[in-house]
Design a binder for these strands. Structure first.
Lengths: 141, 141
DNA sequence: TATTGTTATACTCTATAACTATA
DNA sequence: TATAGTTATAGAGTATAACAATA
């Protein structure tokens, strides 16, 4: 039994686009020398809201055991600090430093610019459909 | 300057959903013991159309230097063969074997089932919007 | 007992560039 | 001179399970 081309699968379109976009972002900020995972983490942290490792894992799709290494590098560069969570002392709060906020803002701006360029001629209802489908795919997993 | 939450970015939603869906697929087929990249490759090869390494790289978003290793493992398992392309002898054609077709069909069926479950209550125009946005994001990179 | 985050191991993926063969 | 695919290396990401501290 054969199946139709992968190109038409909503699910298989995800990794294609993910690889391309994260790579493009990393390449747009060559002086920052961030890997795709570091770009992903910084872009999500850019909202300035402190969060736990588990929360960032859900935001980024990066496993916590992988995040440990990613966060180690970002911390070593002085972009973030791990602070105690006094509400739950098993947990920690990830907080951007001043230079981390600067870097995160650049990353986030690159994300915004890339999106704006890509979606310039895409109508709003298409974007709404997009978010509905991505959420649905994510939710079922 | 702070940015809105990553949750609302079309671009940042991609890696989140990609990790979740590929991982769910791999976990749904535990006896196959395929990595997410192997799942990605097999799902794309499942249409039975032979293609070059470069083509599969574009289909999957996996770099050709990474694909070499992925294809080595799939070939070693007897799922595919590398055949000469007589039209361009620098290139090769990736062709599924009989057992490779069986495995690819299972992978593709899992993809289809997951998609069907996720998108059961998603209207067709949302799906059209989704494909338009994913393509636009991919194209700009 | 369950959860948060880290550690450990072995394996897989990535970036980059060099390399072979062919075009 | 350019392209298809492989190789090589070092570093980054993954699965998995064990672990300490806390809940």
């Amino acid at each position: 039994m054969l199946f139709e081309s992968g190109a038409s699968s909503a699910l298989l379109a995800l990794p294609r686009a993910t690889h391309a976009t994260l790579h493009a972002l990393s390449a747009r900020l060559p002086d920052l020398r961030l890997t795709t995972s570091e770009v992903n983490a910084m872009a999500n942290l850019a909202d300035g809201i402190s969060r736990s490792v588990g929360d960032l894992s859900e935001d980024t799709g990066i496993r916590t055991s992988t995040l440990t290494g990613v966060l180690d590098r970002l911390e070593r560069r002085g972009y973030l600090s791990r602070e105690l969570d006094f509400g739950d002392r098993r947990s920690i709060r990830l907080v951007l430093t001043a230079s981390g906020r600067t870097v995160a803002a650049r990353v986030r701006r690159a994300v915004t610019e890339l999106e704006a360029a890509a979606l310039a001629n895409v109508p709003a209802d298409h974007l709404a459909g997009y978010h509905a489908v991505v959420s649905a795919l994510h939710r079922v997993c």
